[in-house]
Design a protein around this nucleic acid. Structure first.
Length: 564
RNA sequence: GCCCCCGUAGCUCAGCUGGAUAGAGCGUCGGCCUCCGGAGCCGGAAGCAUGGGUUCGAAUCCCGUCGGGGGUACCA
């Protein structure tokens, strides 16, 4: 019996009880959802089905709840008490035995075996960062990188086979501008002013590239004749930079997908497919003035039609992006996750509309999951600093991590907020190595337990190696129970965070676990020389807690120190 | 103009597929080891922007208002 199977079993017996009483009046999609109670006096798990059913079966909720509980099996494994409280909640209290057993399992096997593996045998593709190779990654990319990586690891934790993919544009106008900016730096004498083109890139990193280029190819290159050399060199340097930035966060992609891989075949094929579709008697693709190709997005419920191909035959952003998504769909993933910044909202809606039209609405909504995160502003010395991209005065990912002094703290803090919430990243707080900093609070709890285990080892006390049914009798105190109850909830909460792709829930859980442990520790003497048995049992709880903390931090890619 | 996100404690934020007394960190006020790590614990003060609606029940869903942020390219 694991936390997940216990909940499933409860829902199953509740549903079968409901159906056996009321039969056909119960809708087919009726589910008796069981969730954690937020108040100890109402048991550990709670079901509110009776209140929902009251209207359907035309009876008052308490009486409905009474009828349901009457029909439940005599005893349910893991449950000690079933009660009806308040307006009609059916509440369940765990048996002490079950709680002790669960804690023992967590202590001996860790968290992983108990996370429901809903993704087993299925393939997921997560696309994130996907910043074009024109310069270093910024603070905004950092949030996205952390989100994408953690969501990937969460999916892995629930059994998915995950591929991480980085899509980049190596064929557009921006790359030409970048090459031209490099050429300008390259051609300007050491002291002279570089003629950076209109809209070009001013970052200092290009000056370094220029000297690398000279070392490599000599000084004889000219923009007019060697465009390609400049552009390719700049692209290579930029990708190198991005990879090294990502490595600061421990992120590696399985594939870097270049837009040029889609041109021209995949893109022309996509245009043909779209041209073949007519809505209200009109083709989805039409010619505008001077040979431009437009896509009739308004026919798909979008606010504006958009140019797909310019008059010089090059494509705008949306076109290859649709082709890219078709490519992803053709690779037969069960789940396709896109993580974008808020600036991509409009285009991603357009792309989705086009995909739905080509592949069918259901197919797309079933598999495609787009997570749009809001932007970050940095708070430094109590003031917000404005982030401006392009012109070179942005804060880079590397600078941020250096400034904070730790990639672990940086990652963790980004994950304390939901993706959809704008966030202030407080540099002053991040730099503090004290309890004010939530990362250290959690890590301290881990180190404290590790220290306790060391002390216990010296005293000759160790966690029990095998579960015995008498173990729970040694853990009767209220603080013991509180901690066991908290531990019990962790595996299913991790699964929920994975299903919903909400990694910020992990930092919430970690804070709860840390508080839970400190509280327990403060009130209960773990190593009690009077009784080795009790000491061993309590030590088992500490070990369970330590493993949960360490496994959760592991999912976040944050270190769980034994000493600090 | 249109679109999106957000208004929850003094500050930064959880809680939102409706449920029982709304939580955390920081700050603030007051306490706590002769003993396993005080980077800790316990307690106090303090809050759902606002007006309607739906409901047995709303921080949560719907509509309006006010306020904050972002987006709205033939850049990606």
């Amino acid at each position: 019996m694991t936390p997940a199977t216990l909940r499933n079993e409860l829902e199953r017996v509740l549903e079968s009880s409901v159906r056996s009483i009321w039969g056909e009046i119960i809708p087919d999609d009726f589910r008796a959802v069981v969730s954690g109670s937020n108040n100890l006096e109402f048991g550990d798990l709670s079901c509110q089905a009776a209140m929902r059913l009251a209207a359907i079966v035309k009876d008052n909720p308490r009486s409905v709840a009474g009828m349901i509980t009457e029909t439940l099996p005599e005893s349910i494994e893991g449950i000690a008490v079933v009660s009806i409280d308040g307006p009609g909640f059916i509440n369940f209290t765990f048996s002490d035995d079950y709680l002790a057993f669960t804690a023992f399992n967590l202590a001996s096997s860790g968290l992983k075996p108990f996370i429901p593996d809903s993704g087993t045998g299925r393939e997921a593709l997560v696309e994130f960062v996907s910043s074009n190779p024109t310069g270093p990654l910024t603070v905004g990319h950092c949030r996205q990188a952390v989100l994408g990586e953690t969501i990937s690891i969460l999916l892995v934790a629930s059994g998915w086979n995950v591929s991480r993919e980085y899509y980049f544009n190596d064929a557009g106008r921006q790359m030409t501008l970048l090459g031209e900016s490099l050429a300008a730096r390259y051609l300007s004498a050491e002291s002279g002013e570089a003629a950076i083109p209109e809209g070009g890139y001013h970052g200092d990193y290009i000056i370094e590239w220029a000297s690398d280029l000279k070392a490599f190819h000599g000084t004889g290159l000219k923009w007019e004749t060697d465009r390609d050399t400049f552009i390719r060199f700049a692209e290579e340097k930029a990708m190198e930079m991005i990879r090294s930035d990502l490595s600061l966060l421990g992120i590696e992609f399985d594939r870097y997908f270049a837009e040029s891989e889609l041109i021209p075949e995949a893109v022309t094929d996509t245009i043909e497919r779209l041209s073949g579709i007519t809505v209200d008697g009109k083709s989805l693709v039409y010619q505008g003035d001077s040979g431009k190709l437009w896509l009739r997005f308004t026919a798909l419920g979008r606010p504006n039609d958009r140019v797909m191909m310019r008059d010089d035959g090059t494509y705008t952003y949306r076109m290859p992006d649709i082709a890219y998504h078709l490519d992803k769909f053709s690779r037969n993933y069960d789940l396709i996750v896109d993580i974008f910044g808020a600036d991509h909202l409009d285009t991603s809606r357009d792309v989705t509309a086009a995909l739905e039209c080509l592949l069918g609405r259901e197919n797309v909504s079933e598999k495609l999951r787009i997570i749009i995160h809001q932007f970050v502003s940095l708070v430094k010395d109590g003031r917000k600093t404005k982030m401006s991209t392009r012109s070179g005065d942005f804060v880079t990912l590397r600078e941020l991590i250096n400034d904070v002094g730790s990639s672990d703290v940086t990652k963790y803090l980004f994950l304390t907020r939901r993706a959809e919430a704008q966030m202030d990243f407080d540099l002053d707080l991040a730099r503090k190595q004290s309890s004010e900093n939530p990362v250290y609070y959690v890590q301290y709890a881990h180190a404290r337990i590790a220290g306790l285990l060391r002390t216990a080892g010296e005293a000759g006390v160790s966690s029990p190696q095998e579960f015995s049914s008498g173990l729970y009798e040694l853990l009767e105190g209220e603080y013991e129970r509180e901690l066991m109850r908290l531990l019990e909830s962790v595996p299913v909460n991790v699964a929920a965070a994975s299903d919903e792709m909400e990694p910020h829930r992990l930092t919430e859980m970690l804070a709860d676990l840390a508080t839970g442990f400190h509280r327990f520790y403060q009130h209960v003497r773990v190593i009690d020389t009077e009784s080795m048995e009790i000491s061993a049992a309590r030590l088992m709880l500490c070990e369970a807690c330590r493993r949960c903390v360490s496994d959760l931090l592991g999912i976040l890619g944050v270190d769980a120190p034994d000493r600090m």
